[in-house]
Design a protein around this nucleic acid. Structure first.
Lengths: 217, 217, 217, 217
DNA sequence: AATGAATGAGCCTTCATTCAT
DNA sequence: GATGAATGAAGGCTCATTCAT
């Protein structure tokens, strides 16, 4: 009856479980992650997952949605730019904050992995993820691209170009194991984020400046 | 007697296993796929995997490399270009054959999924895959990019630009579920491959034409 | 309801497993014994071994050490001798309790077989067995031998003589099948234990009295 | 059709199998030894065991009986002593040749292990082993003991004493793993055979000289 | 006569889940 | 409300054996 005095004070078992589940689901994937490992990591009883969440899948869903909300809160889409920023500045800000989110140091990438897995092997949770998080972000990028394209900004071209920009960012996350093997000496880490953001921005600015203005030979 | 009329047409248990393993590993991933399901699907005995491949990982490894070699055979990197092709033509050929390999073909999507999974969650098989297939392909792209950059082709820049090109291609595969939800009306299928290849090439050509020659404002 | 009437009388699955494991490991050996047979014999679920012991080897290890401790508890090394006992009395007590342990008791032969197997074909469990149980027992025998040798008790000789004593005891167990075939009419059973203990003690006392004092002819 | 020219010339596959089977059965035991390992070691096809011997058990039986015959041929029971040898000399010769057989260097003990296993877990083959090999050897030892006991040589005492002698020899084989752990620094190898034979003989001679002549107090 | 290929039974282990306090 | 104990289903793998040349 003095249980409340212990660290595992009653109801926060739920919270501990979700905090432990995030990295493990992220690293291992839904199937390969085990309830045992999560419970051990959370320091709770093996039966706690079924008791608090019913089953493994429900714990996964909860973890995923909590992860989304957290990511959105920590890295606002517009990175706190002034309204007078140029298109190039806004593009750099977008790219840099995107890279920061998926390559950054604080949380060791499990959030990125968790979302990336969900994107490859979608569950019902992906629909909400797209509407709440991804679509707003993509619309913002489209407006930046649109501004940079100026008169050439037809809707179809804007979307294609926005995809070209964002693809360069996610590439460094999705393909990281391949990149590490192709260039073992290069460290794709947080110190490199600036350099990568600079290149992606430059590449994209040049592309946006040139595309559509001349006919292809 | 001659043979059984349908199953086990020759002594091709090995081939049957690999053909059955591809889609299953692709759909489920290495861990979640079961040897039992693969054997059932191949119509062979459960122990056949051990006999022919030693263990599950080796079967996976073989399947993976056969999958990529098959893709390369059907869509050679240079798409049958003449030696007099311009840099722009070679870039288009590269991009188009790449997209064809991962989006086109009759085969559903299991080949793409298989490779995408391996890149996100590498097993021991990735090392061989990178050395045997990815690195040569990447080097070829680097030579194209280098030609297009001309005098500005410093090694570091060439690599970054090659990544920017290839990232736009893989994006359409890795992020397909997200794209389908962002633009439900758009059908990202083999008919679209030409249009996408055209855009990626144009975007990249413009970028390669402009990058490094002028300072960013 | 109270409980089930017969099986699973308490929460003694652990104990039931160890009791079932003893005879089976003894009869079949570690490798040939199967977890399935042990669980069936114990009336518990197949996964209980993993839950309670981690794996088969740990169950074996526990069974082994419990078996030897049980034997020691039933037949203490010094057989309840007074402190004023002579060396000859202590030697007889040692030999008699040793034989009782491996030949006597109601239990059939599985305890002896279990230990004999482990000594011939050691697993990781033997190390612990030697340190915890065999070495103390051997040291006790050495002290008895040392007392009987008196002034001739050089360390090397003490060890060799102690081995000579203990070897005569274990022989009746290890070589039982051969002895039964050599002397079919003789019943090597618990009734004979006293007679055998008497011979081994006499033989060893005479040896210890004579060895080292005279040159061999 | 030129198969006869190869090393695996036709029929000696049988011989190769039996030669390979001996050490493997000896080291691992019947159950733990695998047909695969034996065939690989013999350099023959996996199916050869079943083809030549019907099954694994028959190969084991053949190997065992061949091993017995070989052991008998190499180490004659009486070690080539002159007929004028004293009892003490004959006892030493017996002990030394016995130890040589089970601890000696030439064949790395697999024969001893094979026989020891058969003694602990007898199959039908043990009967023959006892009659052909062990009983003659034991009778010879009895005659030596009888000579040394002189007037005290009652049949029952002779047998008990002969067992006490032989038990000290086999002990160094059966309990070798325990001895290695009890005295890790001591190397129980062929160089030691002489020293051990000397001790066992001295111990036994002293015992035989003293036993039965005086009453135990 | 001899073998590469294939098989089915069985092994130990792991898993998410449920039960009985 | 929360947990240690127990469970049944399944997984990958190994084995001796048989089949089809």
């Amino acid at each position: 009856m003095e249980k409340e005095l212990l660290a595992k004070s009653d109801q926060d078992t739920r919270r501990r479980l979700m905090e432990a589940a995030g990295p493990i689901f992220g690293r291992r994937g839904f199937k390969a992650a085990t309830v045992r490992e999560i419970c051990r990591s959370a320091g709770v009883n093996l039966a706690a997952v079924n008791y608090h969440f019913g089953d493994k899948l429900e714990l996964y869903s909860m973890t995923l949605s909590r992860c989304m909300q957290g990511g959105l809160a920590r890295h606002p889409i517009d990175g706190g730019l002034s309204l007078t920023a140029t298109g190039a500045e806004r593009l750099y800000a977008f790219v840099h904050s995107f890279l920061q989110r998926i390559l950054g140091d604080g949380n060791p990438d499990w959030q990125g992995q968790l979302l990336a897995r969900e994107m490859m092997e979608p569950t019902a949770a992906l629909d909400r993820l797209v509407e709440d998080l991804i679509r707003p972000m993509f619309k913002q990028l489209c407006s930046i691209v649109s501004e940079l394209l100026g008169a050439r900004a037809k809707p179809a071209l804007v979307i294609l170009c926005a995809r070209s920009v964002v693809s360069q960012c996610v590439f460094y996350h999705h393909s990281r194991p391949v990149l590490q093997r192709l260039s073992p000496q290069e460290r794709i880490e947080s110190q490199q984020v600036q350099r990568l953001a600079r290149h992606i921005t430059d590449f994209s600015l040049a592309a946006l400046a040139g595309i559509g203005s001349e006919e292809r030979g």
